[in-house]
Simulated scan of single mutants.
Amino acid sequence: MHPALSPAVLAELRRPRPYPAVSILMPTHRREPDDAQDPVRLRNLLAEAKERVQADPDVSRADRIDVLGQLDRALAEVDLVHAEDGLAILAAPGEHQVWSLGRTAPARVVVSDTFLTRNLVAAHAAERPHWVVAIAADRVAVWGGTEERVAERTGNGFPLVRVNENPDPERQERIGDSPSTFRDEETKTFLRRAETELGKLLADDPRPLYVVGEAAALALLDAAGPIAREATAQIPHGGLAQADAETVRKVVAPAVRAHAEREAADALALLDRARGGKAYAAGLDEVWQAAGQGRVERLLVEENYRATVRDDGEHLVPDEAGRPGVREDIVDEVIERALDTGAKVAFVPDDTLADSGRIAAALRY
């Protein structure tokens, strides 16, 4: 399964595809006994998707055979043993992708000329992705992750590895030591190169950055340029440039949680100011309309807020799941609408917005 979403990946997923582009979405479960239903639901949804492709007169024989094969290959890649809260299978002529989501999604099959991405977009925002860079004198490793998991970034210049090919034997023979690891010019040059590569990475995929290393390494990277100085947090902790994923996650977890709490507090303060200035929307119907008009500057959503509604032409009306015409992922739809128009989204603990209908927004006008 694909390990991580990014703005570039989401943009690629949202481009038009040759028909038929099949999207299969479903909730999954992390624990027993609820996880027992996941394989059954997956088989049923896959069967529905195949039936719709086979019965569609607009699908050529070649594309039908291709997409059915893509669906089978996607199924083989699904790992329900390590499931999170949702699953997305995307298949079109010549391609398939499988995504595990840290946010639930309603069960559905969609056949169109684009993939259904709103649940992936909302999951990406809710996971609060970040970067971790671990600094050592001879290696700089970058990890991409969320609160629950991290994975080392390979490619695009990382990891950076330095081989010390020019030790100073005369110095060692004369005075019995070698130059300080973080004072020699080769190390300074190496970390300046790391600063340059980090700048490229952040330009392509901006995220909060946590810089980890010995105090001397952090100081030297500070001197190399502004990126380390402007990082979300610096964490003096050596030995992580060669560490495993779980060790890295545990070291940065307190800083990641602290940043999430600061972001939530800042968003709530902005919301209070917007309420006083009457540039404020509260409740799903108001926020949905404001998002559709491109007026949302900052959207706040309780972490586990979900709603099922139908659109009566003027307003969203609460309804029951499974009925014709209902929208079971309307909250994710609002999040995607807001992000598409440049809004920032903050997720806050449940009951934080109890007096605002669980979802609220500071408006541009």
Rank of each mutant, 00 (worst) to 15 (best):
V211E: 03
Q242V: 15
H237M: 04
G239N: 00
G213W: 00
P208Y: 10
A245D: 13
G213K: 01
D222M: 08
D222Q: 09
R207K: 14
Y210N: 03
A241Y: 12
A233H: 03
L218V: 06
E230V: 15
L218I: 02
D222C: 08
T247R: 03
R207Q: 13
E214S: 08
L209H: 04
V212M: 04
P226I: 07
A245L: 06
V211W: 02
A243Q: 08
L221W: 09
T232Q: 08
A243R: 12
L221Y: 08
I227P: 10
V248R: 11
E214A: 07
I235Q: 00
R229F: 11
E230H: 15
I235P: 00
L209T: 05
Q234R: 10
Y210Q: 03
E214R: 06
A217C: 09
L209I: 05
Y210C: 01
R207Y: 12
R229G: 15
A241S: 15
R207L: 13
P236Y: 00
V211N: 05
H237N: 06
P206Y: 14
L240V: 03
E214C: 00
R229W: 09
P206A: 14
P208V: 11
Y210M: 05
I235H: 00
G239W: 02
A215D: 13
G239F: 02
A219K: 15
E246T: 05
A217Y: 06
R229Y: 12
L209S: 01
A216G: 09
A224W: 10
A223H: 13
L221N: 05
V248Y: 13
T247Y: 01
I227F: 11
P236N: 02
Q242W: 14
A241P: 14
E246A: 09
E246S: 08
I235V: 03
I235E: 00
G225A: 06
L220D: 07
G238F: 03
A231M: 05
D244N: 11
A219W: 11
I227Y: 11
A215Y: 10
Q234S: 09
A224I: 11
G238Q: 06
E230T: 15
E246M: 07
P208Q: 08
A223E: 14
